[in-house]
Structures are given as structure tokens and as C-alpha cells.
Design a protein around this nucleic acid. Structure first.
Lengths: 141, 141
DNA sequence: GTTTGTGCAAAGCATTTGCAGCTGG
DNA sequence: CCAGCTGCAAATGCTTTGCACAAAC
């Protein structure tokens, strides 16, 4: 709980820093994002936020998510099937495993793969600006 | 030219095999796909196909692409920004580099990365069914 | 002749936007 | 106060679909 309000605090601070007004709707969304351990989509975030602040509209959820994304506070993922899903940015970069059957998202991290990517791009005359790596998987029996 | 009609031939064969009728519109689309070296989207494919067969509609392009995808004849890619882009399936599996500035697509292949992916999934109790790896890059100076 | 494919226009879906009113600083 | 938000509803962009006609086999 301490952690959670810390994160919310950091987020509101980020809003303030960006010269952006701190409204009831935005606070609600930030709280929801802070406590989310899954990777919810906009509709899901909207539903959760409405429980804290019934006046939030889906349009505002989208607008706020875009602002937060620009500020680097959240990441937007466009996995296969359905709409975008969001997560709060955390320290370490990571990629995702998606459980095909359940839709569950598992995070992982591989420096080796990262290095190989850079290497491949370099050999072809490119610099990697960002990448997308998703493993669509099924649980082993 | 021989190669190209070979590929078209293989594709029509694939249609026949799937018990699907071979129509003028589908032949046009197949020809366009066979000669495409880039990764065109549906609208672009529609425009090219219309040059061969003016009666093709965009709806049919989409419908045919879905059939071809199910038959494993083409692959659909959903890169960031804009709609889906298509390419004919070729022997070797590969991933993509996307030039952020030009939209150009470069293919590459890395067994090492592939192996690492399997390894990571296995350790977490998963089998990789398929994956998506895209490097969004900028040309080095 | 059936059965399947086609064009057209309308519908779907996720997301964005214009606008008149509300509200934070 | 007044710029910056907000909800609402309408608009967007890509893709799919219902339907009556056309064309494969």
C-alpha cells in the first residue's frame, strides 16, 4: 500500500512536472494503473477507474493514457488480437510471453537477445531505436 | 518471368487444393503478390490488382487475403502504425527490421535468437507456438 | 443448375476529435 | 477568472459482413 501510493505520487508528480492539471479523473486512472499487475486494455482500465470516480469517460481514459505515454509513465503494447494494453513503466526493460489460451502476460528479460538484435541491425547498417519481441506460447503439459 | 508464373501457378494450385474456386479477381491478386518484393498493405495490393483486373474490389482483396493466410500462402504482419501488410510465404522463416523513416522492410534471420527464445519459454514452462520480432531502426550515418 | 464468389454499401471495433460546458490553480 | 479538462456524440481508419447478382464447375 505504501508502495502503491508512492507510485501514484510519482505519477501525479510527473503530471505536475509536465504542466498538466491534476484532475479527479486522472488521479483515479493513475491509482488504477499503479495497482494493476496485469496488462489491462483501455476498456478494462475505464471500468476499474469508474469504481473510484464514476464520472470518468472512456475518451478521457484514452486521452490520459496518451499523455502518460508521452511522458514515459506508461507503455502501450499492441499484442495480437484486440486492442492496446497498458502497463506502468518500470525500471528494467523487458519483453513479453503471451499465453495463447488464457491471454495472460508474462514478462521476461534477455540481455543476450538484446545484444544479438543490435549486432544484426549494425551489420545491416542500422541502429535499433526500439523493438518488439513477443512469444506467443502454450503451457507445457 | 518463369519464376513468377511458377509462383502464381503454385498459388492457384493451392486454391484448387483447398477446394476454392479460381476466379479472375483471385488470379490478379495472386499475380500481384507473386511479383511483390516489398510488404504491401491491402489498399496497395488492391491498386496493383486493379491494373490487371479492374473489377476487383477491396472487399475481395481482404477476403482473398484471409483465405490465403489460412492456407499458409501469405503472411499477415501488423507492424506499428497503419494497417496490416502482406507477403507471400517463403521457405525460410525470418523476422523484420523496419526503417522508421522510410517504412522500408528488411528481412533477417537469426537461429541464435530463435534458440534463446525457446530456451526462455521452456524455463518458464511454455512452448513457443509463434513469435513476433521487429526491430524499429534508423539508418546509421 | 447449384454452390460459391463478388461488388456495393452498411456495419464493426478500437481509438480520436469537435464542441459546449465544467473546473482546477 | 481563464486556460485547460471533460463528457458526449459524431468521426475516423481499417477491416468485415449482409445481400442480391454474377460466374465457376
Amino acid at each position: 500500500m505504501g508502495d502503491e501510493s508512492d507510485r501514484t505520487g510519482k505519477m501525479t508528480a510527473a503530471l505536475r512536472k509536465a504542466g498538466i492539471r491534476v484532475t479527479r479523473q486522472r488521479i483515479a486512472l493513475l491509482a488504477v494503473l499503479a495497482e494493476a499487475v496485469d496488462h489491462p486494455d483501455a476498456v478494462e482500465l475505464h471500468e476499474r477507474a469508474k469504481r473510484l470516480e464514476p464520472t470518468v469517460s472512456l475518451a478521457t481514459v484514452y486521452r490520459t493514457l496518451s499523455v502518460l505515454e508521452e511522458e514515459g509513465v506508461v507503455h502501450r503494447h499492441s499484442f495480437q488480437g484486440g486492442g492496446a494494453r497498458f502497463e506502468t513503466t518500470h525500471e528494467d526493460h523487458h519483453d513479453h510471453i503471451l499465453d495463447i489460451d488464457t491471454g495472460e502476460v508474462i514478462e521476461f528479460q534477455s540481455n543476450k537477445i538484446e545484444q544479438l538484435q543490435e549486432e544484426i541491425a549494425r551489420e545491416l547498417g542500422y541502429d535499433v531505436v526500439h523493438h518488439r519481441l513477443e512469444l506467443y506460447c502454450r503451457k507445457k503439459l
